[in-house]
Amino acid sequence: MAAIDFLLDMLATVGVYLMLTLSLNLDSGYCGIPNFGKVLAMIAGAFVVAFFPGRILATMLGMSGDFVTDNASMIFQINSFLASNFLISTALFIATIIVAIGFGMIVGYVSTRPAVKIGSGPLAITLLVMGEGLRVIGTNYAPLAGGSIGISAPDVFAWAGGDRFLVVSVVVFVFSVAIFFFVNRLTNAPLGRMLRAVRDNEIAAESLGIDIVGVKLKTMMVSSAIAAVAGALYAFYSGAVISTAYTRASWTFIPWAMMLLGGVANNVGVVTGVFTFVFLRKLIVMYKAELTPYLPFDVLWLELILYGVMVILILMYRPEGLIPEKRTPTLKMSTLKKMQKT
């Protein structure tokens, strides 16, 4: 039983990180936007889950009271209602995901717009500052996500009863697989080549008629939408949204580490990176308890140092990652001639 729980937990963790890292790969790996604010869109998705579905159900069921202060009792009533209504639960889940996609796009546009024309450094900083800013708002403005205490989200998988954990984990993983195919399709199309052209040489790309600002904005919108889905799914998975938990270290830096480990601008590499990293992390967590008595500090910090050193070593000795980016070969002369004939 414990083994299954462990596997399911790993499945869900891999799923969430896979979505985040794929979206990071789309904007940073393919399009060359140094996105140090990945956590921003993730928070946006989580806040959508914290804000909308619970309130909608509360009004539908005619409940009185404040959603934030009476959160526990209201969520309890809502969950017992959802447990017997499979259709409403699923409809609500899908609607929330769609709203999260919308908000992700808005957040992506708003955060990229100020500095998109100025340069990659300013853009990186704007994204980073925006990510921190949204978290500050969430921590202090209680109606949004319960302030620093956090808020419970309605459990749209309550109908599964005892198998809830299994269902959520599988749903998260299925979403991540779908997003893998979506991103893979995007980046293996001519669009992917265009993104790489923008990344490698902006001036050359512009001279070929590519609207660089537009491409960057659109890429950020799509990638932020994906990250927002990841955030929403993670909120549904954990059943609660606590704004203080959305730190730069765990939701921006670790996806970066995963992407660099697996291979920049290579979706298969990203998948490898995420699996390797999550596995390593689970190992560290397992051995953490054995190390703790010997050290006069929390092992958590050692973990942080380990990830930082890992990223630096990757950058120094294997910048292409585990699986390097594939070159797009030009078509063979014979194929071109055939195409010319037809």
């Binding site: 830096f253 970066w256 942080l304 990830y307 950058l315």
Partner: peptide, 16 residues
Amino acid sequence: DGLFVLTFAFNFVLLG
């Protein structure tokens, strides 16, 4: 951009 990532990672080492 790679150097930005480097300093970003170094920051976490320092924080640790």
